[in-house]
């Protein structure tokens, strides 16, 4: 295609956004609603992920060594644990340190009462092990238990399972919600383009009669669809910024120091990219879907225009 044709067709496509401004407005409005929902779903999922991540990091497994083992043997075991699958970190806690930590937890008033324990420390040497992926909790737990010199392994299996389940549900629900909203966006754009085609069937019939290729006819519609998608993407990012700022202010006001939302600046560029991608995809796919059937009918060059 010649450059002058390309610039003419692009101009026509952009002009159509304005010519069909009521339809464009309706499409942009519904697209913004869809994308805003997608944005809220993404922002919610990011914040839940962050909270679950914190919970996951706190969910450690305590490994206790058999009594009477040499410290060098324990440190060897720690090294072995660190090289196991699904282990993020393993910190050795000798029994003296363990007791000190316990006494500190009890507070100063009980410290004197239990000070005799320092003479006959009943605690075993242990290690605090952080897992990488809580969904692999059972397998990792069993592997730790099976290591030589290990007396027992203590962990919060219920918390691990809860975190895993919530995380999976949110991931799955987010995926389907976003997919559904994307489909809605696609249908909306396709519908707008279909109406544009109906309004412009006279031009299309003339184009076909004078020998326009199907691509020549398609390009302005694709450009129109893409423009609607990009406009919606830009406006949605702006709107989401306002909504998110309001949410952040409310959280800071009502839960000061307890809840901290992921900052907007840390994800808005990715989200903007997603919005533009959705808009462009919906624009291109919607135009092609709508035009496909119409252009297949060779009859439109001479067919009656009503």
């Amino acid at each position: 295609m010649k450059p002058q044709s390309m610039s003419y067709l692009t101009g026509e496509g952009l002009k159509n956004v304005w010519v069909n401004r009521m339809m464009s407005l309706a499409s942009v409005g519904v697209l913004i609603a869809c994308m805003l929902l997608i944005g809220v779903a993404v922002a919610f999922s990011l914040n839940v992920d962050k909270s679950l991540g914190t919970l996951q990091e706190q969910n450690v497994v305590m490994v206790y060594f058999e009594d009477g083992r040499e410290e060098t043997a324990n440190l060897q075991s720690i090294d072995e644990i660190q090289h196991m699958d699904n282990i993020k970190d393993a910190v050795y806690i000798p029994k003296e340190e363990g007791l000190r930590a316990q006494l500190e937890q009890l507070g100063t008033e009980y410290e004197a009462i239990f000070s005799w324990l320092e003479e006959e420390n009943p605690l075993p040497d242990g290690a605090m092990v952080t897992l990488s992926d809580l969904s692999e909790y059972d397998a990792t737990y069993n592997a730790l238990q099976a290591l030589p010199g290990i007396k027992n392994v203590n962990g919060s299996r219920d918390v691990a399972m809860m975190v895993t389940t919530v995380s999976r549900i949110i991931g799955l629900a987010g995926f389907w919600i976003i997919l559904l909203l994307m489909l809605i966006a696609l249908v909306i754009i396709a519908n707008t383009i279909r109406i544009t085609i109906h309004n412009r069937r006279l031009e299309i019939s003339i184009m076909k009669a004078v020998g326009a290729t199907n691509w020549f006819i398609r390009i302005p519609f694709i450009v129109e669809g893409m423009a609607l998608g990009v406009i919606s993407g830009v406006l949605t990012t702006g709107l989401l910024y306002l909504v998110y700022s309001f949410a952040t202010q409310s959280v800071n006001k009502y839960y000061p120091g307890q809840l901290e939302l992921v900052p907007f600046r840390s994800f808005y560029l990715n989200l903007f990219g997603i919005f533009i991608a959705i808009g462009l995809f919906a624009g291109v796919a919607g135009s092609l879907v709508s035009l496909g059937k119409y252009l297949k009918r060779e009859g439109s060059a001479f067919g009656a225009i009503h």
Binding site: K208, V210, A212
Partner: peptide, 19 residues
């Protein structure tokens, strides 16, 4: 070939078909 064929001819319609 359809567009190529049509570029070799000019068509005049009964209903003018002006935009």
């Amino acid at each position: 070939d359809v567009p190529r064929l049509r570029r070799t001819m000019g068509i005049v319609f009964q209903d003018f078909r002006l935009i």
